[in-house]
């Protein structure tokens, strides 16, 4: 191609570039990623210390505690999803780019899940040991967290996009996101409890997967629309 001719990037280019940029930023600022992870690990290790060493009691409380800690850790990380981009003006550049905003928002959300959701899933077996959960239950816990954090990242991106123009929007963000996140929490904890009791748990896993798929197909559009509204 000769000098001066234009190259038009495709849809995938925009998605991959946004994903790469956000992963690179996370790599350069590891504190932002480690904070929520640290929070998750702290809550999950302090809880057994506070309740006492009764194995039965710990195993009974484990699904709820692990899931609530994971949910709050995700909420903690959501606030910064679009905030930095809003402040330095790069969000405006995304808005005026010819690439569809939906694709770019999905790229950012996927990067958020890779840097915040996936590490929680990877860390969960380590902290689950503190609750004396058997190996089979830990596997189910990881599976539910894997599906659940995908939904949480996607749903949370809508809330983060809606509150990006507001100062101190954290409380509002939680209010917006929590009602939509309740089904994830309920199905997540219940599925792990059922697995721990030796009952069938496939239905819960399927429900979580369905919720994640639903969020994947709808949330990016809502996020893109919300970003446009909050930048007006």
């Amino acid at each position: 191609m000769k000098n001066g001719s234009a190259r038009t990037p495709g849809l995938l280019d925009g998605f991959v570039a946004t994903l790469r940029r956000d992963l690179l930023l996370a790599w350069k600022r590891p504190g932002d990623v480690l904070n929520p992870l640290f929070f998750f690990a702290m809550v999950c290790t302090l809880f057994p210390l506070a309740t006492g060493p009764s194995v039965q009691q710990l195993q009974f409380a484990a699904p709820g505690v692990l899931w609530v800690a994971a949910l709050l850790a995700m909420l903690l990380s959501l606030n910064s999803l679009f905030l930095a981009d809003h402040e330095d003006g790069s969000l405006e550049q995304l808005l005026v780019s010819p690439q569809p905003l939906v694709v770019l928002a999905l790229g950012k959300t996927f990067a958020h899940w890779l840097t915040n959701g996936l590490p929680l899933v990877v860390l969960s077996p380590l902290v689950a040991v503190a609750f004396r959960l058997p190996g089979a239950t830990i596997q189910v816990l990881m599976l539910t967290l894997l599906l659940g954090t995908i939904s949480l990242s996607l749903i949370g991106s809508i809330g983060a996009a809606l509150t990006v123009g507001l100062h101190r929007g954290t409380a509002l963000l939680s209010l917006l996101v929590l009602p939509l996140a309740m089904p994830v929490l309920i199905f997540g904890t219940r599925t792990v409890s059922l697995a721990a009791a030796g009952d069938g748990y496939a239905a819960g896993v399927l429900a979580l997967a369905a919720y994640a798929l639903g969020a994947l197909s709808l949330a990016p559009y809502a996020t893109a629309a919300a970003l446009r509204v909050s930048n007006e």
Binding site: M1, N3, G4, S5, A6, R7, T8, P9, D13, G14, V16, A17, Q93, L94, S97, P98, Q99, L104
Partner: peptide, 9 residues
């Protein structure tokens, strides 16, 4: 350059 048409240079 991944967001919009850019000059190939």
């Amino acid at each position: 350059s991944a967001l919009r048409p850019t000059r190939v240079r």
